[in-house]
């Protein structure tokens, strides 16, 4: 037990913490210098998985906070239907499927990136969302409905920015040209659909099978 604590303490004191902070701050450089940034992110090892996880967690939290704390006027959340878990999954599942699909596609399309690199790049590309989203939550609470357009504009801007960054990430991580990168993204999106279809099919078959065995079990119970 004490080992764990000392381990954690060492992390915060030592090189690990500094590296973590450095890589996390690097995300701010990445979003402003996307081409340089994403190149160095993987090739120069200036990013870290810990920082990527942090950004993803922040994104999820921002999404939930946005639903929860945005002013009533700009917040069309139906509380009786609201679920933190569904909202969390709403971010995480597409993210993971995207990374998987992009990895699968780029492996076939001569991409240079590894699975973790794609994940890291995508995570870093999400930085604008929490960065703009969190201040906007505060802003939304001091504006009227008419002034609320700023909230909408800035959030849309954040999304467009993040989308652009994802494109840059794909280009840099896989060392693609622009056209090839766009093709890779479109094929990845198709791949995401295929993955979702297969997964759903798999689960529905599994559930059918389970129902089948359960009914056999019940039938046997009745006969005995």
């Amino acid at each position: 037990m004490s080992k764990v604590f000392s381990g954690i303490a060492n992390f915060f004191k030592g090189e690990g913490w500094n590296h973590y902070i450095k890589t996390l701050r690097y995300s701010l450089y990445v979003i402003l210098h996307p081409f340089d940034g994403f190149w160095d992110l993987t090739h120069e090892k200036r990013g870290s998985m810990a920082a990527a996880h942090t950004i993803v967690i922040l994104t999820v939290l921002t999404h939930i906070w946005d639903r929860r704390f945005t002013s009533f006027m700009l917040n069309n959340t139906r509380w009786s239907e609201f679920s933190i878990w569904l909202n969390t999954l709403g971010i995480l599942v597409p993210l993971i499927i995207w990374v998987a699909a992009n990895w699968g596609v780029t492996t076939l399309m001569d991409g240079k990136g590894h699975f973790y690199e794609i994940y890291m790049g995508t995570a870093y590309a999400l930085t604008p969302y929490p960065l703009i989203g969190i201040p906007m939550i505060f802003l939304s609470n001091v504006v009227t409905k008419e002034e609320g357009v700023f909230y909408t504009y800035f959030n849309t801007f954040a999304l467009i920015w993040a989308g652009f960054l994802i494109l840059c990430a794909v280009l840099m991580i896989h060392d693609y040209s622009l056209g090839w990168g766009l093709v890779a993204i479109i094929v990845s999106i198709v791949g995401m659909a295929v993955i979702m279809f297969v997964v759903l099919l798999f689960f529905s078959l599994i559930s059918d099978a389970v129902v089948f065995f359960v009914s056999i079990y019940k039938e046997i119970l009745f006969r005995l």
Partner: peptide
């Protein structure tokens, strides 16, 4: 992924 999908189905 499997876990999340399971959760999704459940919810």
């Amino acid at each position: 992924v499997v876990l999340l999908m399971l959760l999704c189905m459940l919810l």
